[in-house]
């Protein structure tokens, strides 16, 4: 199963990012442009978030998803592009995750293999952590990274199909499908 940019835009819509397509054009342009120091720092943080999220995808997403890199890059870019609070929250969670990764593997999370990433999340007990945007390190990792990417996947039609619905709640398509027996 392939996750496309179109799926990412659907996921962004469910996360309240309007005009996802315009965001994508802007993000592509930004990645290719030169920047001053302040912008450079922001872009570095931006890239850290995107690369960490991209490294998390093969851990978090089911094996049926072939390649989620473009989907995740598109989604995360749209999510943090114009939302300073969310960008700060995600950057903070990336730093917390990297601290755990450094402790166990002496490396940032984005440099781990999927197997190592899965082991790390399991070792720190993230499967038993409640998400909380204002909570502990692990609770913020669960909220801003793990649940963020799971929300992106399962609120999109393609992700919904993995669990039996092409119109998951949050996706504006149910009126066309609710009378039908077939997906």
């Amino acid at each position: 199963m392939e996750l496309t940019r179109r799926d990412a835009i659907a996921a962004l819509a469910a996360a309240g990012v309007a005009g996802g397509g315009a965001v994508l054009v802007a993000s592509d342009r930004d990645r290719g442009s030169e920047s001053n120091d302040d912008e450079g720092a922001t872009n570095d943080a931006h890239e850290d978030i995107v690369e960490t999220a991209t490294a998390l995808a093969p851990v978090l997403y089911p094996s049926e998803v072939d390649d989620a890199a473009e989907f995740v890059r598109t989604y995360v870019t749209g999510r943090i592009e114009n939302d300073d609070d969310h960008r700060t929250g995600m950057a903070d969670a990336v730093a917390a995750l990297d601290a755990h990764a450094s402790e166990e593997f002496e490396s940032n999370f984005r440099e781990l293999s999927p197997e190592q990433g899965d082991r790390l999340l399991t070792d720190v007990g993230l499967d038993r952590v409640r998400p909380d945007p204002a909570g502990s390190d692990l609770e913020r990792i669960r909220f801003y990274l793990v649940n963020e990417l799971l929300y992106a996947l399962f609120s999109s039609p393609t992700g919904g199909e993995l669990v039996g619905t092409e119109n998951p709640p949050g996706h504006p398509g149910g009126l066309e499908s609710y009378q039908g027996a077939q997906r």
Binding site: L60, Y61, L121, D127, N147, V163, G164, P168, G170
Partner: peptide, 17 residues
């Protein structure tokens, strides 16, 4: 809801599906 289930279950990867 499938979305809420996915986020509440705690699992990830094939386990969450």
């Amino acid at each position: 809801s499938p979305v809420e289930l996915a986020l509440e279950n705690g699992a990830w990867g094939d386990d969450v599906v």
